[in-house]
């Protein structure tokens, strides 16, 4: 599904990714862990198509196509979704209107008919309920005055509505208390299927108690320095990132 080969990227002429390789097959859940500044969020944004990153080498193919050649909206149409670490507020744009616009933009791009209002409402209600997201938040402007946890849940709501093929969650667990974390994890687990892949970018092992990854990768200085199964996450939790960095340096 997703194939990243020797990816190198700069931010303001500073190299952040230094030859990153990653293969994600349909149905797999990959966790990417690593210390601050190792390039985790940069990777997430490069995949989603944010401006300001200069790819200096390597390739990213998604479903056999060059992902980097696509505009952010085209990537969404192909089924890429990024749950952001810091979702922005959109003043004056109603959350429900936004969700419907987004859904229909994707459907139209894929040659499907727009969703009708009744169906849409039914789906939003059911999914907001699953995430225990107050329905009042649906009527507010996007993320305006939402708490940190509400913003994260609103991201997951969008993900559930858009049903992406590749969902990237950028530190969705940060700032969530244990109950909110469980709810969000349930939401993500609800999306798991043999056709769908998930990349969890996280700093802590905690999230992985609830969403069991198939693979765990450790990112350090812009490269994946170690890959393993979920036990690797536990090891990291115990020892910290220091030992890996030392090992890599050695």
């Amino acid at each position: 599904m997703l194939s990243i080969k020797a990816l190198k990227a700069n931010v303001e002429d500073k190299p952040i990714l230094n030859g990153l390789d990653l293969e994600v097959k349909p149905g797999e859940v990959h966790a990417i862990m690593g210390p601050n500044g190792s390039g985790k969020s940069t990777l997430a944004h490069i995949l989603a198509g944010r401006d300001g990153y200069e790819v200096t080498g390597g390739t990213v193919t998604f479903k056999g196509e060059d992902l980097l050649a696509l505009e952010p909206e085209e990537r969404a149409h192909q089924g890429v979704f990024l749950a952001m670490q810091y979702p922005v507020e959109l003043p004056g744009i109603n959350n429900m209107v936004f969700l419907r616009e987004a859904m229909n933009a994707n459907r139209i791009a894929r040659g499907e008919a727009p969703i009708d209002a009744v169906n849409f409402m039914k789906q939003v209600r059911a999914k907001a309920h699953l995430l225990q997201l107050d329905e009042k938040l649906l009527k507010r402007n996007v993320n305006s005055g939402f708490s940190g946890g509400e913003k994260k849940r609103n991201e997951i709501l969008q993900m559930l509505m858009l049903e992406p093929n590749l969902a990237i969650l950028d530190e969705t667990d940060s700032g969530l208390d244990i109950d909110a974390l469980r709810i969000v994890a349930e939401g993500v687990n609800a999306l798991r299927s043999p056709e769908r892949s998930i990349i969890l970018v996280t700093h802590y092992q905690r999230l992985l108690d609830y969403i069991k990854p198939d693979f765990v990768h450790v990112l350090s200085a812009g490269r994946i320095v170690r890959s393993g199964d979920k036990d690797l996450a536990l090891e990291l939790e115990e020892k910290g990132y220091g030992w890996l960095e030392e090992e890599t340096a050695a």
Partner: peptide, 9 residues
């Protein structure tokens, strides 16, 4: 970017 990442042109 946020809007576009959701598929909106």
């Amino acid at each position: 970017y946020y809007l576009r990442s959701r598929g909106i042109k």
